[in-house]
Design a protein around this nucleic acid. Structure first.
Lengths: 253, 253
DNA sequence: CCAAAAGTGTTATGTCTACACCCATGA
DNA sequence: TCATGGGTGTAGACATAACACTTTTGG
């Protein structure tokens, strides 16, 4: 592969002020599974505009960091989590009136955490809240800016990614039972999957889950102990689990 | 659905200069099928930086337009096409050193055109060129900025969209033969598909292609005239054509 | 007539879904 | 021993891939 001479153009006589200036922010939709229900993190805005309203965490991009680094920094500031199991960009939003103060273009990121951990309210947020995603999608919460649309896009993305990539394992721990993994699909898609067929599909796909040989203790109501797995490498064309096409089964939400 | 009071926050005492300023651009990867081969449009840069190098068309976002409008404007300026058959956002790029002049965040858009039409070289481009996408992916052309990466992401996106959405019909005319539609999949994925099975899959899926009853004239070398179809509505979960998993067939490129 | 391209039929193989059944545990 | 949840077996429905065959054109 040829290494490109990246700094070809001369940055000589050039006046940046002749181009319209924008503020660039990064907004992070932080998702986690809690009790089989997909949850997301909201923060209460401590500053104008939309002061006191719920919003998704975010902040201004700094000139010397990449977009991904900015997202990672915002995530760490808000949750204390330094290494998310997954952090993906999913969209950009730049409508002229989306921020009443000035022209702000924001880049949407999707973060997936295994556990909630200690959620730290940052300097510009008076409070933090973990809510079911379904509540936001139903419009029960009034979010600041165009954050409701951003959340909708993020959820649509995670639902698709679930079918196409290995994102599901980002929701569960280092080792997990297949019931836990199945709960990720069920909670995200709002469907019920047949446990038997789920197991076969997942185990059959090569390099997807790897048995550890250990067993998980059963729940308080008994039941056979489940085998513990760890995540394998991702795979070729899409994952082993797909949304039903014709025969839709009853939903849970 | 509840209408949100959008201008809630007061834009009062606020100093925009306290936040880092960025230029925001929109870059458009313009794709079209030509002779069964996926092509893209490049323009030669007429200005510094990277003056004289090939680049994908793009330009600065204006404060009073949306990102989508900016992409549409750039596309029209560069190609004369006002209404593309498809225009989708696929990514944002904001590495600190991606533009030697200043901090520029760019939003990548993917445009699909039916025909090339009259390609008009704009004011800031000395020349325009339609090249096979494969040439760019192989690194045969040295593109300005981080445009090679942007192109790679765009192609990856169009390949996925092809499997999941009705994007294929955006490449063909108002009416089309199934051979033309098949060429879109074959040219984009670099595979050969069985014509018989392709027909069955596409026709079987309800509301995907609609027969017009008319026939297309055969080519110069003869052959039975093909039936003409027009595009139907999109569908539920993904399109009818999928990349082969196990049995990979011989590629064409 | 032959070659070429479109369209139909057929068959073996693979995958998906539903659900019956067995297994290991807590109370 | 019963309830609960994990794991296996299996049969029918459905989808996929390969390819032989028929149809309709140009030369």
């Amino acid at each position: 592969m040829v290494t490109k001479s990246y700094k070809a153009g001369a940055p000589e006589q050039y006046d940046p002020s002749q181009f319209p200036a924008f503020a660039v922010t990064v907004d992070v939709v932080i998702l986690t599974m809690s009790d089989g229900v997909l949850h997301m993190l909201l923060v209460r805005r401590g500053e104008t505009p939309f002061k006191g309203m719920w919003a998704i965490p975010g902040g201004f991009k700094r000139p010397n960091e990449t977009l991904h680094e900015a997202a990672r920094r915002e995530l760490a500031e808000e949750t204390g989590v330094d290494v998310p199991t997954l952090l993906t960009q999913f969209g950009a939003y730049g409508d002229p009136d989306r921020d009443p103060r000035m022209n702000v273009v924001t880049i949407g990121y999707l973060a997936v955490l295994r556990e909630v951990g200690a959620i730290v309210a940052g300097t510009d947020a008076a409070e933090a809240l973990l809510v079911p995603v379904a509540d936001v999608l139903r419009g029960r919460l009034d979010l600041a800016f165009d954050h409701e649309q951003i959340v909708r896009d993020a959820i649509e993305r995670v639902r698709t990614e679930l079918e196409v990539t290995g994102i599901a394992t980002a929701f569960v721990g280092q080792t997990f039972t297949l019931a836990e993994l199945r709960a990720v699909y069920e909670g995200t898609w709002g469907v019920q999957l047949d446990a038997a067929n789920f197991r076969r599909s997942v185990v059959a796909e090569d390099g997807w889950v790897i048995p550890t040989g250990r067993l998980a203790p059963p729940g308080p109501s008994g039941g056979r102990p489940a085998e513990l797995y760890r995540a394998g490498k991702a795979w070729k064309h899409g994952g082993p689990i797909h949304r039903l096409k014709s025969t839709e089964r009853k939903s849970r939400q």
